[in-house]
Amino acid sequence: MKGTVRTGRILLLLGVLIFLALIPVVGRGTYYQHLGFLTFLFITLSIAWNLVGGYAGQISFGHVVFFGIGAYTTSILWLRGIPQLLTIPLAGVAAALYGLLWGWPCLRLRGPYFSIATIGVGEATRLLALNLENLTGGAGGLTLPTPEDIRLYLFGFYYMGFFLMLGSLLISAAIRNSRFGLGLFAIRMDEDAAEALGVNALSYKILALMLSAFLVGVGGSLYAQYILYIDPGTVFGFSMSVNMILMPIIGGIGTLWGPVLGAVIFTVIQDRIMTLSLNLWGFTFKLVQFHLLVYGALLVLIILFEPRGLVGLAERAYRSVQRWRQAKAMVPTTG
């Protein structure tokens, strides 16, 4: 019984992956290809944030700094003549080192204090990027060269996004089942107790942050190469940090699939529903005007009623269905 469920799940997953892999082949250059890339990117960011915020329980409001560092590392190096593909791992490494730089001191802070510090780090980094014109081009941003065959280029990037997402998912799954992951969970539950059990909390947290930073940095690098133009307001903007918090929390913080679910829902809502307008009582409301209200309310409701997000909700629903089935099976059928 259990075995078939498991095989079923794996088959479903494979089916989805094959479907996703085929999108650009069938609909090459369509909008779905673009949407697909963005979704993969957001899934990566969401999973990466979850490594620190979910697994280790350290809520970061400044994760966008890694995205920005990744984007700028790639752009600056590419413009200075380093081969484009080589800049991708370098972007990840730069982001991870930046994570070490401020994580090493800031992760000593506990819970909410760490969160507050990350807001400060995020904003300070954005201001630096704005003002270090010689390096970053200031607010004018950096424009990257347009490649020869843009369609082929974007086609390629769809798969880069796809594999980045897959990689992040595998890393996240591997951590969940590892000693390292258990250590992070212990830190989330009770840091002092974890320390007492021999978990070096600080180095665990730093390692999680650096890993997360690496993934986000690579994401930022792909973003820059895909959009071909970056500026501090976009790649260091607080709203990106907010998105990175909202997606995993809506989906299910600390779970494996929650961040994925959250990111997919987030992009779909953003693209499909938010562009609609609603006609009520003679006024036209554009739904885009309410997006923060919706996300804010979701955040509040989730924390109040289902801290494990949509995944938690789904599990709850699944369990009650099963209970109902069992109850039904117990009742002898009268003929």
Binding site: S239, V288, F290
Partner: peptide, 11 residues
């Protein structure tokens, strides 16, 4: 945090 989050404006 001057222009971080860009949101919709009212109708």
């Amino acid at each position: 945090m001057s222009r971080e989050i860009k949101y919709p404006q009212s109708f």
